[in-house]
Each structure stands twice: as C-alpha cells, then as structure tokens.
Simulated scan of single mutants.
Amino acid sequence: MEKNYELNSFVEMKKAHPCGTNKFQIVRMGADIKIKCTHCDRTIMMARRDFNKRLKKVL
C-alpha cells in the first residue's frame, strides 16, 4: 500500500502531537522528512522510513 504525498501535503499521523492534534504539513523532503504541526507550528524531523510507518493518511 503506497501512500502518495509530496511537499506541502497535509497528512494525518497515527499518534497525536503533545499539543493535541495529529495533522501536519510536510515542509521538507529528502532522506529525512520534516513536518510542521498545523496547531502549534512546531517542526519534527524524522527518517522517511519512520514517517512511512507513522503515517495514517494523506489529507
């Protein structure tokens, strides 16, 4: 099951951010993926492999 996402896509993750939301925007892509919380604007950097495991759906 391949999920299609690209730069500036909004995604929903399996686990919520500590601020309470689980919706993020992709702001950088490469070997690592950087996502920004849509609620508090904090950024999280993770390996693409971890991102694919934690991704629930593309919005």
Rank of each mutant, 00 (worst) to 15 (best):
M1Y: 05
E2C: 01
E2N: 07
E2R: 07
E2L: 01
N4Q: 12
Y5L: 05
Y5W: 06
L7V: 09
V11H: 07
E12Y: 12
E12R: 11
M13G: 09
M13F: 09
K14L: 12
K14Q: 05
K14S: 02
K15Y: 03
K15I: 04
K15D: 09
H17Q: 00
P18I: 11
P18W: 04
C19E: 00
K23A: 04
K23G: 00
K23T: 07
F24H: 10
F24I: 06
I26M: 02
I26Q: 00
I26N: 04
V27N: 01
V27R: 10
V27H: 08
R28D: 06
R28P: 01
M29K: 09
G30A: 15
G30L: 11
A31S: 13
D32N: 15
D32L: 15
D32W: 05
K34I: 15
I35Q: 06
K36H: 08
C37W: 07
C37Y: 08
C37A: 05
C37L: 08
H39L: 12
C40P: 11
D41N: 15
D41K: 06
D41E: 14
R42T: 14
I44D: 04
M45F: 15
R48V: 02
R48P: 04
R48L: 14
D50H: 06
F51D: 03
F51H: 00
N52Y: 15
K53W: 11
R54E: 01
R54K: 13
R54W: 10
R54G: 10
L55Y: 12
K56H: 14
K56I: 00
K57R: 05
L59I: 11
